[in-house]
């Protein structure tokens, strides 16, 4: 029985590229990875939004209305639903003049227990040191 921890670091803004959404969909895929592994072995995913990447977390996104695609916001909520830890850099959020009131913090409507953690970069740095592999998006 072993655990491999993956850290997904999202630095790019939403909708300019596919990267933030791919980070989230790959992180969500950690929920079904066991089919490839031996009993008891797992892969866990943690996602951190830093730099311009914090813009992915803005709430009330209108991607479906304007582009007829699912929003990055909905992917963050889906991540919370499957218990993926989601961190947002407090300092980078402040640089955009944003607070916790401006971003998606939970997915209560989906029944998710997990919530978004707005933390100083120091804590994200610690997460990056704790994981086995880092993937930058």
């Amino acid at each position: 029985m072993a655990t491999t921890k993956l850290g997904f670091i999202v630095q790019r803004p939403p909708y300019k590229s596919e990267n933030p959404k791919l980070a989230l969909t790959h992180a969500i895929a950690s929920q079904s990875v066991e089919v490839y592994l031996n009993d008891g072995d797992i892969v866990t995913a943690e996602v951190a939004f830093i730099g311009d990447g914090v813009l992915n977390c803005l709430k009330d996104q209108k991607a479906t209305e304007h582009y007829d695609i699912s929003s990055t916001e909905s992917h963050i909520k889906m991540s919370l639903l499957v218990d993926v830890k989601v961190f947002v850099c407090k300092e980078d959020l402040a640089k955009f003049g944003l607070t916790e009131n401006d971003i998606v913090m939970d997915a209560e409507e989906f029944g998710a227990d997990m919530t978004v953690s707005v933390v100083p970069f120091q804590e994200i740095n610690k997460m990056m040191e704790d994981v086995n592999h880092l993937l930058f998006f």
């Binding site: 950690s30 990875v33 089919v35 995913a45």
Partner: peptide, 12 residues
Amino acid sequence: SMDWYLASTFSA
């Protein structure tokens, strides 16, 4: 599907 990639990282 994407879980193949994550599974590959397990033993990498």
